[in-house]
């Protein structure tokens, strides 16, 4: 594997009893891009992210993240950051204490990373609330805290599950900027979301998962170019591409 690829998977599969959640997934994700990971509900996106972050074992196939097998969790944790859909926070800590906890877990020196944490919090309009208890945080504030702790250690790849959910337009805009900045700094962003305009705006590459299988993978513009617009004059967008690809797959599968 070359270092240019931060994620490679071969025949990656996850089964639960008789149900196949992810089937023979082959991914090659280059370093320093924003990879949009799309799919309908229950397509297997979260399961894929859990396998790539070592939270669950694959049933079959192989996956490497930052040159590390996903089954080698000890080595894997150094390279990844995860912001799951439900922010992993202690209600009884303040925002600052929570970020300290995240830094402590990774044996980071807090005074060293504090500036970065404050800078991120500042950009996300959270700095003034860092000493408040998380139990009093709004959903958006929780999202912001979870994002900061996921990128605090400057990981090789950060997995974001619906990161803009619950954010006001201004915060969502800032977060999109931060994601782009991360990618520019060589951190790959694996972005799973249903908000397609966000993906269209910031993703360099997009994968579409349908019933556990990768049914399309390309740049957003190439995916949009595939859309048949023979019957309308309005320009196509990623949403049209997503709907058409998933509908075609459903039709093909019968």
């Amino acid at each position: 594997m070359t270092r240019d690829l931060v994620v490679t998977t071969t025949d990656l599969t996850k089964r639960y009893g008789n149900t196949t959640a992810v089937e023979s997934l082959d991914l090659d994700i280059p370093t320093g891009i924003v990879y949009g990971f799309l799919g309908p509900n229950g397509a297997g996106k979260t399961t894929t992210m859990r396998m790539l972050t070592g939270l669950i074992d694959p049933s079959a196939g192989h996956a490497m993240v930052a040159d590390t097998p996903v089954t080698d969790r000890r080595a894997l944790v150094e390279h990844i950051g995860l912001m799951p859909e439900t922010p992993p926070l202690y209600d009884d800590l303040s925002g600052r204490e929570q970020l300290q906890f995240a830094a402590d877990l990774r044996a980071l020196d807090w005074p060293t990373v504090e500036d970065r944490a404050i800078e991120l919090a500042d950009r996300l309009d959270l700095a003034a609330d860092l000493d408040r208890r998380i139990s009093g945080y709004s959903k958006g504030m929780r999202q912001k805290t979870a994002f900061i702790q996921a990128v605090l250690h400057d990981p090789d790849i950060v997995f974001l599950d619906e990161p803009t959910s619950g954010l006001d337009p201004r915060a969502a805009h800032t977060l999109r900027e931060l994601i782009t900045d991360l990618a520019a700094g060589d951190t790959t962003v694996f972005l799973s979301t249903h908000i397609l305009p966000v993906v269209e705006e910031i993703a360099d590459e997009v994968g579409i998962l349908y019933e556990g299988r990768l049914v399309a993978e390309d740049t957003p513009s190439n995916l949009v170019a595939r859309v048949d617009r023979s019957e309308t004059d309005t320009p196509a967008d990623l949403e049209d591409a997503f709907l058409e690809i998933t509908a075609d797959t459903a039709e093909h599968d019968g």
Partner: peptide, 13 residues
Amino acid sequence: GAVYTLIRTSIAP
């Protein structure tokens, strides 16, 4: 609970 995912992806099992 939820915070467990942070711990699991930050330190070795």
